[in-house]
């Protein structure tokens, strides 16, 4: 680990204004991603600004029914919050399927949005990686890519977005609130994470100096909700494929549906094609399978991750089935 300067701030404007804007600075909240990467010498900040004392730990319902979540609300507190458990069970399930209790106690809402990929080649400074070192090449495309993406990939990068929480938020619908040197702005959650394309080093719609202060969840969609995470072992592993599903029924037909995918894509993935395939259709196994096919119609397999296309479809079918059952319950 290289030495860095640490500065603590007490107010949001202080955090934003005090932050001299260049690549050598990083915010730290829970530290569960940043400190790992600093120890691995993947991130080498000269200065770290500790934002963990900012007053961003509240969860409040807005007048329009949306839920405003402070960026420093821990994953545990968010998952266990009464309104979240009742109105956004898919998000609560997604949060609780991630990491371990200890990590969820430290990890924050804003930090999780900024979580970085677990691609082993990204996490080793000795290996070529376009995300870490633009232009150096992608080691995963020719190397081992069992854990890598089949959706949203480019010739520059196939690294998987690791978050469960973000998949739940894409399904629930949300907005990221940013505070920066030029004031406040909002970005739709599903637009916040960027596809790797030609610039895999750019992961977010985040301008220099900006800080996530809140995530605002859309008003609860009701319906039946389910988050299904598939992985090798039963706990403490990133998803190989996951699906967040929200199904609203009108009789036996699907009147509305949201499908988001994790573990298979370069960003938290909204499966719009699957939603379109299912909307207005009877909630049957055959239609769930059609939706799953639509979700992976554009999938590209690499040498070791072809199984993820099958596994991802299975996640969609089962999550839709169980969300539908919840809707009927």
């Amino acid at each position: 680990m290289r030495a860095f300067e640490l500065e603590s701030v007490e107010a949001v404007d202080q955090a934003v204004s005090h932050r001299r804007v260049h690549d050598g600075e990083a915010f730290i909240a829970g530290g569960t991603t940043l400190l790992d990467l600093v120890k691995l010498d993947v991130m080498q900040p000269e200065k770290v600004v500790d934002v963990s004392r900012l007053p961003l730990k509240r969860i409040e319902t807005l007048e329009d029914g949306r839920l405003k979540v402070g960026a420093l609300v821990s994953n545990t507190d968010l998952a266990k919050h009464e309104i979240v458990m009742r109105g956004y069970p898919v998000l609560s399930e997604a949060l609780l399927s991630g990491a371990s209790t200890g990590l969820r106690n430290m990890a924050t809402t804003g930090g999780n949005v900024m979580q970085r990929t677990r691609c082993p080649y990204f996490r080793d400074p000795d290996m070529p990686c376009n995300k870490r070192e633009p232009g150096s090449g992608c080691s995963a495309i020719e190397g081992i890519n069992r854990n890598h993406s089949v959706l949203g990939t480019s010739e520059q990068c196939i690294a998987t977005h690791p978050s469960d929480m973000c998949v739940g938020m894409v399904a629930a619908g949300a907005t990221v609130v940013l505070e920066g040197p030029d004031g406040q702005r909002e970005v739709a959650f599903e637009d916040y994470h960027l596809l790797p394309g030609e610039t895999p080093e750019r992961e977010h719609d985040l301008k220099p100096g900006e800080l996530i202060t809140h995530v605002i969840l859309d008003a609860p969609r009701g319906g039946g909700q389910h988050y299904l995470k598939l992985r090798d072992r039963a706990s403490y592993e990133f998803a190989l494929a996951s699906c967040a599903a929200i199904v609203t029924l009108d009789g036996d037909s699907v009147s509305d549906v949201r499908v988001a995918l994790g573990g298979v894509a370069t960003k938290p993935w909204r499966a719009t094609a699957a939603e379109e395939a299912l909307k207005g259709q009877p909630a049957t196994q055959e239609n769930f399978e059609r939706a799953a096919e639509a979700a992976f119609a554009d999938a590209v397999a690499y040498s070791h991750n072809g199984y993820k296309i099958t596994l991802g479809k299975q996640a969609v079918v089962r999550a839709l089935r169980d969300a539908t059952a919840a809707a009927r319950a």
């Binding site: 080691s139 072992r233 592993e237």
Partner: peptide
Amino acid sequence: SEFDHSGYPYNNNLADYIVPVNAD
């Protein structure tokens, strides 16, 4: 334990080298 075509040790850490956990 996996090594890629370049000899790179792909999973030399406890997150990527999968052992059973309590839930298993």
